[in-house]
Amino acid sequence: MGLFDKIFKRPARPDQRPQGFFQTFTAYTPLFTSWGGCIYESEMVRAAIHARATHISKLAMQVSGAAKPKLQTRLRAGPNEFQTWGQFNYRLSTILDVQNTAFIVPIFDELDQVVGIYPLLPSLCEVLQYGGEPWLRYTFSSGQKAAVELRCCGVLTKFQYQDDFFGSSNRALNPTMDLITLQNQAIGEAVKNSATFRFMAKVNNFAKNEDLAKERRRFNDANLRGEGGLLLFPNTYTDVKQITAQPYTLDAGQMQQIKARVNDYFGVNDDILQNKAYGDAWSAFYEGAIEPYAIQLSDVLTKMLFTQRERAAGAQIMATANRLQYMTNKEKLEVSSQMADRGIFNRDTIREIWNLPPLPDGQGQAYTIRGEYWLLHDDGTATRKGDDLTDGT
């Protein structure tokens, strides 16, 4: 049994003939095809995608609510039996950046109950109508096909404009990718040409083409087939000049512009790529690149796995990150002391900021409030921690 059978192991329906494409507002055929542009093969593009995916893989998945307790227990351990949440988010983010559309399918057990989720990379996906309901039919590069109800699947998109279901391709990046390819070729040619020597000269006293050909062969045999040495030109050669190739390559400023285009397209910068961002710089990257992914993933998974009634009762999945870990040590100390004194953070929360494990036996769940802080109640009374004093003023 392969991975395909592990994920799509629901029994096939007796009549799975679709009733045409699902009707959309835009009149575009609801069809996704894997884009042929190999942007992931570019070192510069892969570095940008990897930087985003690496930080996204650190998101913590929190399941809350009372619905589907068995499923919640499974999801807290991981999305499926093959991946951790870090691996799941890394691959899903990579697929989304490369294809601008990422699919998540549920994994069913023998009783047709959801026991996990898995990110897909199909070569083709169609929205078809069957039994009055839209279905997603996936076709993989191996030729295998599988169909799942659209309401059971999750679809993440970027640059969604023309299609009602899927994002656009990355063809807008084609001019930049062409420049990167040409530049790499030019650098390679420059290295090759730097190891060769070419000369040109006039040959005198030769009137026949046959004589010129014989002289060319003689010169090659005498000078270019040995183990190195000097090139000897007899007096029949005049105006001997070396031919120097000067392949054109982009200067540093132009290369920086190309790099800035790629970084702008994927929402990263040099500090993020080189792991130099912290504090406000990393918070800005989080809000611009990671938080939109976390919000979309949380909404998609919540709607995918829980019914409307269960969501109304508080069932949800949230992707969160502890942004305070990326502050400087001075900022961490200030936040820790101020939030602890006011009873906002407990000890375990502060230890998490400093990348420390929680205290055993729930010791870190207690809150500490400094004695000079007072709690003002709605009725106008005020109490101080540890005292029985009240003040009605």
Results as ranks from 00 to 15, higher is better:
134 P>C: 02
381 T>K: 12
343 G>L: 06
208 K>Y: 12
152 C>N: 14
387 D>V: 12
8 F>P: 06
265 Y>L: 06
143 G>D: 00
36 G>R: 12
172 A>E: 09
340 A>P: 00
381 T>A: 05
148 V>T: 09
263 N>Q: 14
266 F>L: 08
183 Q>C: 03
319 A>Y: 00
213 A>P: 03
161 Y>N: 08
68 K>C: 06
60 A>R: 15
245 A>I: 01
359 L>W: 03
53 A>G: 08
324 L>T: 11
228 G>A: 02
386 G>W: 13
283 S>L: 13
186 A>I: 04
118 Y>A: 10
33 T>E: 14
62 Q>E: 14
51 A>H: 04
160 Q>G: 07
327 M>Y: 14
384 R>Y: 11
215 E>S: 10
331 E>A: 15
131 G>F: 05
133 E>C: 10
5 D>Q: 15
119 P>A: 07
57 S>N: 01
307 T>W: 01
8 F>L: 01
200 M>V: 14
392 G>V: 09
218 R>F: 07
118 Y>V: 04
22 F>K: 01
271 D>H: 11
216 R>L: 10
370 R>K: 13
194 S>A: 15
295 I>A: 12
312 A>F: 08
195 A>H: 10
69 P>D: 01
71 L>A: 06
82 F>V: 12
57 S>A: 13
323 R>E: 01
216 R>G: 09
139 T>C: 06
168 S>D: 11
121 L>N: 13
342 R>D: 00
9 K>W: 02
179 L>T: 06
383 T>V: 13
247 P>E: 00
103 F>P: 04
14 P>F: 07
281 A>V: 06
343 G>Q: 00
78 G>Y: 02
264 D>K: 00
174 N>A: 14
324 L>V: 05
94 T>W: 06
42 S>M: 07
100 N>T: 09
204 N>V: 09
78 G>L: 00
355 N>T: 09
256 Q>K: 13
108 F>K: 03
139 T>L: 09
192 K>R: 15
44 M>E: 11
312 A>S: 15
206 F>I: 15
202 K>G: 14
315 A>N: 15
73 T>C: 04
5 D>H: 08
123 S>V: 13
220 N>M: 10
237 Y>N: 07
350 I>R: 02
321 A>F: 00
341 D>G: 14
114 V>R: 10
42 S>L: 02
1 M>G: 12
160 Q>L: 04
22 F>H: 08
109 D>T: 05
257 Q>H: 10
96 L>T: 03
219 F>K: 01
266 F>S: 01
165 F>T: 08
208 K>G: 06
367 Y>D: 08
132 G>A: 08
115 V>D: 03
90 Y>F: 13
138 Y>S: 00
164 D>N: 13
198 R>S: 03
121 L>R: 11
164 D>Y: 06
376 L>C: 03
6 K>M: 13
54 T>L: 11
17 R>T: 14
54 T>M: 10
77 A>H: 10
78 G>I: 02
18 P>A: 03
295 I>M: 11
224 L>S: 01
292 P>H: 07
204 N>C: 14
222 A>H: 01
108 F>S: 07
